[in-house]
């Protein structure tokens, strides 16, 4: 492919800026530890009867934390170009809104048509 060398300005610095600063193996291990702890908490919350009344928000918060850790560190959104965060969180918002409205419109209103 050497003959295909188009005239171009090599921009190694700028390439590096976009792709570097990945976390180290130690950081990954720390994140894995936190993820494990959060999962243990989730399962713990599920089995503790006293917490049943706040089960839903607690689980949602714990899983949001896990979600954030995986996305930010394992998928290195934390370190990458912000554009990737946008590419992920914009559809995610939409997905969440669709989820909320569908459950409401079908699960709820279908049984009780309006006040």
């Amino acid at each position: 492919m050497s003959e295909s060398a188009v005239e171009h300005v090599t921009a190694p610095a700028h390439h590096a800026a976009a792709e570097s600063h990945h976390p180290t193996a130690v950081q990954y291990l720390v994140v894995a530890g936190i993820l494990t702890v959060l999962t243990v908490c989730e399962i713990g919350v599920y089995y503790i009867p006293a917490l049943q009344s706040v089960l839903v928000p607690l689980l949602l918060i714990l899983s949001a934390g896990k979600f954030y850790l995986v996305a930010a560190y394992y998928m290195h959104l934390h370190f990458d170009s912000r554009i990737f965060s946008g590419l992920f969180f914009f559809p995610l918002t939409l997905a969440a809104l669709i989820l909320i409205s569908l459950t409401l419109l079908l699960g709820f209103l279908a049984h009780h048509p309006g006040p």
Partner: peptide, 11 residues
């Protein structure tokens, strides 16, 4: 990103 942030806030 500000636009994105605002959009996210709707959740």
């Amino acid at each position: 990103m500000q636009v994105m942030y605002i959009f996210l806030l709707m959740i």
